[in-house]
């Protein structure tokens, strides 16, 4: 038990630190690196939470595809790939808001049981059954949304559109 809690703590610290570094660093390419680490870290947490399918998905989709996409975006929009980004904020307001939100969530969490919850392993086939035999056609809807988003993305980047 104590091992798993230690692992969770480590993963949590890494997640917070990488997320913050990703946003605070001045080099956009560094940002991409930190966010990739962040995604990988989260995937580890999913494995820890006995959700290996999601962990793999996280690795494939986020750490793989999304990171590459973001890197691609940075490459296309920057003349020099290592360019500094000025962090022009709108004051301490957002930080205060974020702090407040955190406080509320912590307060709300007191309502939950404080003792640990046993997390069971599960059969990944169960997840596929849930996905495909659920009440709503989840995957169908997802596919439709993704298709239309793809069409929209192509439309946006089309050549000759000024």
């Amino acid at each position: 038990m104590i091992l798993e809690e230690l692992a969770f703590l480590a993963i949590a610290v890494v997640a917070v630190v990488t997320a913050l570094l990703a946003l605070l660093t001045r080099e956009l390419v560094h940002t991409i690196i930190w966010i990739a680490l962040f995604f990988v870290d989260l995937s580890a947490l999913y494995f820890l939470l006995q959700a290996p399918f999601l962990g793999v998905l996280q690795l494939g989709v986020y750490a793989g595809a999304v990171t590459i996409l973001l890197l691609f975006g940075v490459m296309v929009t920057r003349k020099r790939i290592f360019s500094r980004e000025a962090a022009t904020g709108i004051g301490p307001g957002p930080i205060v808001l974020a702090g407040l939100t955190l406080t509320f969530l912590a307060l709300g969490s007191e309502e939950l049981p404080q003792n640990g919850v046993v997390v069971h392993a599960y059969d990944p086939t169960l997840l596929s059954q849930t996905l495909f035999n659920a009440d709503g056609p989840w995957l169908l809807l997802l596919g439709l949304v993704m298709l239309s988003a793809l069409a929209g993305a192509i439309y946006l980047v089309r050549e000759g559109r000024e």
Partner: peptide, 16 residues
Amino acid sequence: AAYVVGGLVGFLLLLV
């Protein structure tokens, strides 16, 4: 986005 977050926080305040 800040206004949206402000509204959300206000709503949470009310709720809590």
